[in-house]
Simulated assay, not measured.
Amino acid sequence: MTPAARTQAAIELLDAIVVSARDGGPAADTLIARWFATRRFAGSKDRRAIRSLVYDAIRLLGERPASGRAALLALASERPDIAETFDGSNYGPAAIAAGEPVAIRGLAPAWLRDALQRSGLDAVQIAALLDRAPLDIRVNTLMGSGADVQALFPDAQPIAGVPAGLRLPSDTPVERSPAFEGGLIEVQDAGSQKVSAAAGAAPGMTVIDLCAGAGGKTLALAAAMGNDGRIVATDTDRARLQRLQPRADRAGVSIVEARLLDPGEEASALADLRGAADVVLVDAPCSGTGTWRRNPEARWRLTHARLERLVATQARLLDLAATLAKPGGSITWIVCSLLDAEGADQIDAFLARMPGWRAEVPADVGTPHRAGARLTPAHDGTDGFFVARLRAP
């Protein structure tokens, strides 16, 4: 493909991503994968170049642009090499016309930037949310050691404060490696590993992973427990939960029971576990502001109304978790968000309506933030998280 054809491809992809973000459709990486699957003529260099153009444009623009062309024109205004590809050639974009709409660069929509600032983040910390994410893996200690993995990946670097964590060059083909296929490693951000460890899961415990998804944190809990005890992993998303068992099998984990829940009927489906859990992990559905390094178009999806719905769902899940913890047991509350509405404010509200419960700030996790702790890309080099541990009376 010519440079101009790559630019036109990026414009087409951005058009699809803008519409999907507006209408709540598939994520950018899904749309990009589908686009390439139907265009076999695009070689590996073309794919890398097009993907880079798309994500560079997304990271540049805080507000959702009017079109893919407006987005690429914003990028072209800063990069003459891209501007030159608007040449009107076959398969390339039309030449730039005077007065054409150009998207405006920014860190995030104004209301969302203000909310992050009210949550204690300055401009440098907000900008770091859009850095490129590293490639982190978790060594599955049920299968081997860090030394075993480093023998297979000589470029792997230990991650400070993350005993089972290693950082690899971003282009490492991890998921095609024998170490991954054999269950020795899992791809997992260092921050995700830290907040999973904050739960304090130990051998012999009964643990409920209330929003398990595909099981990334579930498997980390199982390793911390030495595959000894019981983990009930639940979710309302059938497709995601179905991915857990094959992953558990590959990782040598045998203590996990997956349980699909109907939305709004979670309490009845978990009635047999009321007051039974040593640890309830709630990796709650959230705005994902802490994951913009991986999903920068998420800034274009979030609205006031969606945030309000998420906050209401989170409060309901916290109250459900409280019914599952045994006396003296704990809830570990995790959101991959840096908005106080989903983190510290949720904990304050929970403590106000649940007499006898108390908050414990997890040690050695990021920076203390009110009743919990916070991890940020700027300070910790990880995705953004808020984590708090709540102790039952």
Rank of each mutant, 00 (worst) to 15 (best):
L302R: 10
E266F: 01
L339D: 13
G68F: 11
A94V: 11
L241T: 02
I126Y: 05
A94N: 14
M143R: 15
D383T: 04
A248H: 00
L135C: 08
R118G: 14
P26V: 04
A352C: 04
A74M: 09
G343M: 06
G328K: 03
L130Y: 09
T236D: 03
R105G: 11
T303C: 03
A108L: 13
A325N: 03
M1D: 03
I231C: 04
A271E: 15
A190L: 01
D189G: 02
M205F: 02
F41P: 00
R34M: 09
R79E: 13
V19N: 07
S119L: 02
K194S: 15
L166K: 02
D345C: 07
I58W: 12
G92F: 08
P296M: 14
G25S: 10
S337D: 12
R370K: 13
D272Q: 14
Q125R: 15
V335T: 15
R250N: 01
F86K: 07
G343C: 07
S67M: 10
R47W: 06
R293T: 10
L112N: 10
A248C: 10
Q346K: 12
R230T: 15
M143N: 14
Q245E: 14
C336E: 12
A269E: 10
F41Y: 12
P203N: 04
A305F: 05
P158E: 00
V195I: 13
A123P: 09
T218F: 07
D319E: 12
V311K: 05
R370D: 08
S330W: 00
G264I: 10
P154Q: 00
G226E: 01
R299Y: 08
A16P: 05
D340M: 11
D148A: 06
L339R: 11
L324C: 03
G328F: 01
V387C: 13
E12Y: 06
R301I: 05
S170D: 12
A321M: 02
D272E: 15
A16G: 12
R240S: 05
S254H: 12
P158Q: 00
W292I: 02
G183I: 07
E360H: 11
A115E: 14
T172C: 12
D136M: 01
A359G: 08
V361P: 08
D348K: 13
L107Q: 07
A37T: 09
G191L: 00
V256E: 00
V162C: 04
A223Y: 03
G200Y: 09
L13N: 05
L13W: 11
D262V: 15
S330E: 06
V139N: 00
A156S: 08
I185Y: 04
V280P: 06
L317K: 07
D235F: 08
D148W: 08
A251I: 06
R389F: 06
G120P: 07
G43S: 09
P101H: 08
Q125W: 08
R391S: 07
F180A: 10
A212S: 13
R69C: 13
L318K: 03
G356W: 07
